[in-house]
Design a protein around this nucleic acid. Structure first.
Lengths: 133, 133
DNA sequence: ATCAAATAGTATAAAAACAGTACTCTTTAT
DNA sequence: ATAAAGAGTACTGTTTTTATACTATTTGAT
């Protein structure tokens, strides 16, 4: 089964939780409480999302995370990319070298690209808003 | 990273090998030889493909596998489905019950469906022919 | 009838990836 | 200064995946 990691799933849950709150700034602990997910896990997800600027983080006492884009502008593609890494269907993408034993003789070398492109654009076109409606 | 299994990758390689051969009927051993993939692996892939009627199998001495659809009619979606199981992005799909601890309170219950649909149609629209051209 | 070639089905062991957690470091409001 | 809160990293147990092996069944050839 093609799948995204559970963490990506959590990411969506956490991001949706923002939209259900009156506060714009929420700490990891507060979000854990809202989502009923374990706090360390929520913290991990938020760190990953912050690194890719999907949420904005404010450090220090009284800090937390905020969502400064409308959820209609956040695609599943970017969430998955932030949490699970690049969206690519096989390990042998583009110019990646040295990872495949059959490189020299592989009949489909580089051929998964149309699939990657299709997949990526599919995920770009689904936004967080689509998942809450 | 979103990915399909390596087996799906092999499946594509093996199917492409059919199109490069003059014989319509090829044994697992012959295909292993052509693709330089290990024979047990090729055999496993072919079994899975046969189960979903992507290749036709003929048992017994002198038997083997044949491809009786044009490769333009074989989508990546069906190959992935045969080899990796149903294309669904998370474990909590549709009516699947009992697998998720947060079922009672999950804010995005059933919401991954738009993603599944997008993904599926993306993979349907890429055929084996697209990967050889 | 028997044998050998070939696929079908199932099981298993090793390797890799993932999930979850914990710990330390840095930043900042009070 | 202190405490709250995020950043970064590392570790461990579990789960999945991968590759292989083994047995059963089918079928053509002699």
């Amino acid at each position: 089964m093609i799948k995204v990691s559970r963490l990506a799933d959590y990411a969506v849950v956490v991001l949706v939780a923002f939209t259900r709150s009156d506060d714009a700034l929420l700490s990891a602990a507060a979000l854990a409480d809202k989502t009923k997910l374990p706090e360390p896990t929520v913290a991990k997800v938020l760190k990953l999302l912050a690194k890719d600027n999907i949420v904005k983080s404010i450090r220090g006492a009284g800090g937390g995370y905020s969502l400064d884009k409308p959820i209609g502008n956040i695609s599943i593609a970017e969430i998955v990319k932030a949490v699970d890494g690049p969206i690519a269907v096989t390990s042998c993408v583009d110019g990646a070298t040295g990872s495949c034993d059959y490189e020299g003789c592989c009949a489909v070398k580089g051929r998964w690209n149309p699939v990657n492109v299709a997949l990526h654009s599919a995920l770009e076109n689904v936004t967080l808003a689509d998942m809450t409606s």
